[in-house]
Nucleic acid binder design. Structure first.
Lengths: 228, 228
DNA sequence: CGGTTGTTTGAGGACGTTCAAGTACTGTGG
DNA sequence: CCACAGTACTTGAACGTCCTCAAACAACCG
């Protein structure tokens, strides 16, 4: 619960906080809470006010949107060093998404008021937050383009290319296929069929282990755009 | 081309710039270019480096993603007072989207270097940019949730509720149906059918004129979430 | 008037979902 | 060690939504 020595090192490695004077970080940490959480834990729910800024020190967290009765869709995964949802905290508005732990994770929670106060008083922090938001913006835009312009199979191919850094050889999925399917906006069944179809294009899949043998072919197949 | 007196007033009304000392705004304007542009004009293309920050003084601009051979998808519309794509400028990265003028518009273009310099030196600007990005982030998330969780008809209903501010009576679409269809990720044919289906739910459509007679029913139909 | 553009409607088809089994892997208790 | 349950993944068949293609219609404009 209380931040440990090791937490401190992890905190210093968070890009958002890396450039702050250590005194400032101390003050942030003073009011913060650090938790080790298990898969399934809900960090916050869509619709509730943002009381804390959540930062993933290690582990993995999923952002999910809840539909009326259509289950939930995963918008993005976040892992070590990532800030989970800054906009709700910045704007003092309710969350548009829910946060759920999907791997054993260590989560730093900083009170929203402290964040807003720092945003108002600390230029370096404000700048770092701007950069962080700009990065997230691009993540979302990429996904919107995927959804609007690419069919399911190509979305998977594109995801695999990003995951692998476009390197051939063995790689490992970071999440199980049910979650991956939700992230890619398809059912587990469709994901399974998409993997089957990619077998003819140099993708060997065995559980979470994935081998890519024809990155160039995959790029052509899904019109992969290395911009990022 | 050169900023006029009237431009100056419009600039002062841009939220991003409203809180800056007037000296700073003067300096920004000194190197900036202001253009009046007609529908169809391309502001910038996906993939090219961001040389300017574009701000819409009045008119309407569409952000479009280009697929390999699948035409283009509209990600969002921007109008008076909106900053078009800050992230590419902030991060010095290529655009992920193309910008196209869809109505006669007056566009302020500020050199990217000036923006980055101001971001690094002016706390108030940095803060305003953070807030602007946080707002855009929420726009994108809303749309992602729409795409992932709602079928075409409900996306239209949701769009109409947002457009109207959930008020009954007559309203006007800001763009023609072809563009609206692209924004909602469907074909014009599907949009036409979606309007037909909504006739039974209190939506009267005549060209760009729309009348809503049962906002509460529409809300229930699409599970509208007033969070914003 | 003919041409262009925007919208609507219908028929057919593709992609992805749903529903329903079936297989493989894991850990548990007998 | 095996039987068993539980979970994860795969496969097949039927269905639905939305797209494509084609045509008709209206409005507008030279």
């Amino acid at each position: 619960m209380v931040a440990t020595r090791k937490d401190h090192d992890l905190v210093r490695a968070v890009p958002l906080l890396a450039d702050l004077p250590s005194g400032t970080v101390e003050r942030l940490m003073a009011h913060s809470i650090t938790h080790t959480l298990s898969p399934g834990t809900r960090l916050f729910e869509q619709g509730e006010p943002a009381a804390h800024l959540h930062i993933v020190l290690f582990g993995r967290v999923g952002l999910t949107g809840l539909g009326e009765d259509r289950g939930e869709a995963i918008v993005e995964f976040f892992s070590g060093g990532d800030v989970v949802i800054a906009p709700a905290v910045i704007l003092e508005m309710p969350y548009l998404l829910s946060g759920r732990v999907i791997e054993d994770s260590r989560i730093l929670m900083i009170p929203a008021d402290d964040i807003r106060h720092l945003l108002a008083t600390d230029h370096a922090f404000s700048r770092a937050l701007t950069v962080e938001l700009a990065r997230h913006w691009r993540l979302l835009v990429r996904q919107l383009k995927d959804l609007k312009l690419r069919p399911a199979g190509e979305r998977l191919a594109s995801y695999l290319l990003t995951l692998s850094g476009q390197r051939e050889g063995w790689h490992s999925l970071h999440e199980d296929r049910r979650l991956l399917a939700q992230r890619l906006s398809m059912t587990p069944e469709s994901l399974s069929r998409a993997f089957r179809d990619l077998r003819g294009r140099g993708v060997v899949a065995d559980g979470r282990r994935i081998q890519l043998t024809d990155v160039e072919g995959l790029r052509r197949y899904c019109g992969f755009d290395p911009l990022s």
